[in-house]
Design a protein around this nucleic acid. Structure first.
Length: 490
RNA sequence: CGGGACGUAGCGCAGUCCGGUAGCGCACCUGAAUGGGGUUCAGGGGGUCGCGGGUUCAAAUCCCGCCGUCCCGACCA
């Protein structure tokens, strides 16, 4: 940084910009262990709001929370062939405990399918015991080679839902339902548009029948897989003897799903909405929605403006127009050693959606001067009816942030028949999402990845597909079996 | 694990080529003024120069070894 007050710009170096925003907005910091991170209060506050919103939705769809242990017997990991092949290389393993070598090494969970379906098997005798609809909030460890704050760390926080059903169709319905819960959350709370769809065979979860995903476009035009939902079929049920007696008295294997989102979403939030002034948090996820900055020139003004600002804060926080349990989240910045301008920059860096400046002139007019974080637009708001006006403006900001992100994604998406040469040129340059035909052959997918670094993010769900389906495979020219969204990804 | 850069105060860096009292900016503490977009002045505190060894009267600086971090590549939420 030439000027240590200014951030590296997104245009100059997107990676450096991202790191600086995360560190300087105090979302997270590097820990002494390479590849792991400390989530600081500003970042954890966003995660807590994410958790609350999602947890309510999980409950509303009939799920209950439970907790399964961190350590998994090595033998469990080996029971499902695809699963162990996919995860074993990135697992941390405990071999000593109590000062002795362990008889059986214990894997630190990279995900909990094995232990959870082992337990489900113990709890299930009859079809009357199904479905089981469980979620857990937990940490997991995956030993990654290359790490980035929030996006890929050795240890991360997530939720993993695990369910067991009597039929394939019921499991399929559950997997799709939860994918749509994620989509609702990402659009409605994160103001982050996503494309939902099916993963190709090579990108699906190790051990799944089918994997669905939500993919978002970051400001560098790369894709971020923000959430996944898997129809596990009977793969784990068979590996863990998860059987039930059906209505006709026959034994049958259960059908499972699992689905998860992680603290990676915080990184997605930064890269979707941040700008060259720092973080920009959508109001519904902002731990602080409004910061009040009083302005004074002398002791007399200081006492007058402090009193007025306290009164404004009190009016805002005591307002129940949004519901008694959803009060406006307001912070009053009374620090005296800092000039107002310096405070503006600091709160903007931290991404507070709305700032109220309150000085003598505003007080005379019985108004506050409101500045939006997203557009940096300013307007005077009358004290009379301020809480309702503030709530309306926050909703407006939430809405506009989503609209801006959606417009950006569409502006950087390409549809229709594209030559492979044009595709390569695009991936070498600005990047973006390309909707193109795919023959369904893994060889084509692998070749494109090798040549361009781009991968199939999803085969999009119906509503995201092009009006006219592409007819031929972008790479080999054979007839297209499915439209695919191609992009470079995190 | 390959390629590149770097490691000196909380942060950002200079000093290393050419060995000789460890510096600058920001931040921090004290005081005064200032205060509607990054305030000014004065005073002050803070360092095993990543770690270990070697050369030398003398090492941040030269030599050897190690460790760590970031960026770019092969794997992944």
């Amino acid at each position: 940084m030439a000027d240590d007050k200014k951030l590296t710009t997104r245009a100059a170096d997107f990676s450096a910009w991202y790191n600086e925003v995360v560190l300087r907005a105090e979302l997270a910091d590097y820990s002494p262990v390479k590849g792991s991170m400390v989530i600081r209060p500003n970042g954890y506050g966003i995660w807590e709001r994410m958790q609350r919103a999602l947890d309510d939705m999980f409950k509303a769809t009939g799920h209950q929370n439970a907790y399964f242990p961190l350590l998994i017997p090595e033998s469990f990991m080996h029971k499902e062939a695809q699963h162990v092949e996919g995860f074993a290389p990135e697992c941390a393993v405990v071999t000593r405990g109590g000062g002795k070598e362990l008889e059986e090494p214990l894997f630190i969970r990279p995900t909990s399918e094995t232990i959870i379906y082992h337990m489900f098997a113990k709890w299930t005798q009859s079809y009357r015991d199904l479905p089981i609809l469980i979620n857990q909030w937990a940490n997991v460890v995956r030993w990654e080679m290359r790490t980035r704050l929030f996006l890929r760390t050795l240890e991360f926080l997530w939720q993993e839902g695990h369910t067991a059903h009597t039929t394939h169709d019921e499991a399929e319905e559950e997997a799709v339902r939860m994918l749509n819960v994620y989509r609702t959350f990402m659009e409605g709370w994160m103001a982050m548009p996503v494309i939902t769809g099916l993963k190709s065979e090579s990108e699906k979860f190790a051990g799944a029948l089918r994997t669905y995903a939500c993919e978002a476009m970051m400001q560098d035009n790369k894709a971020l897989q923000a959430g996944t939902s898997h129809n596990l079929g009977q793969n784990f049920a068979k590996a863990f003897e998860l059987q039930f007696q059906d209505e006709s008295g026959q034994m049958a294997y259960a059908w499972n799903t699992s689905w998860g989102v992680s603290t990676r979403m915080v990184g997605g939030l930064v890269m979707t909405h941040g700008d060259d002034n720092g973080l920009c948090t959508p109001p519904r996820l902002a731990p602080i929605e409004i910061v009040i900055v009083p302005i004074w020139k002398n002791d007399d003004e200081k006492s007058r403006l402090t009193a007025a600002a306290l009164k404004v804060k009190d009016e805002l926080t005591s307002w129940t127009g949004r519901g008694a349990t959803d009060r406006l989240r307001v912070h009053l910045d009374l620090r005296d050693a800092m000039k107002p301008g310096a405070k503006y920059y600091e709160w903007e860096l931290r991404g507070i959606p709305l700032r109220f400046e309150l000085g003598p002139k505003d007080l005379d007019k019985q108004a506050v001067f409101a500045a939006r974080r997203d557009t940096r637009g300013k307007q005077s708001l009358a004290m009379d009816g301020l809480p309702a006006a503030a709530a309306a403006l926050l909703e407006r900001i939430q809405h506009d942030m989503f609209a801006a992100a959606l417009a950006r994604r569409e502006a950087n998406s390409v549809r229709g028949n594209i030559t492979y040469a044009a595709f390569r040129e695009l991936m070498d340059g600005p990047g973006g999402f390309v909707y193109a035909g795919w023959c369904g052959d893994h060889a084509c997918e692998a070749k494109v990845k090798e040549e361009t670094k781009a991968t199939i993010r999803v085969m999009p769900d119906a509503e995201f597909r092009s009006a006219e389906a592409p007819t031929s495979c972008m790479h080999c020219g054979r007839s297209s079996k499915a439209e695919a969204v191609w992009a470079k990804a995190y």
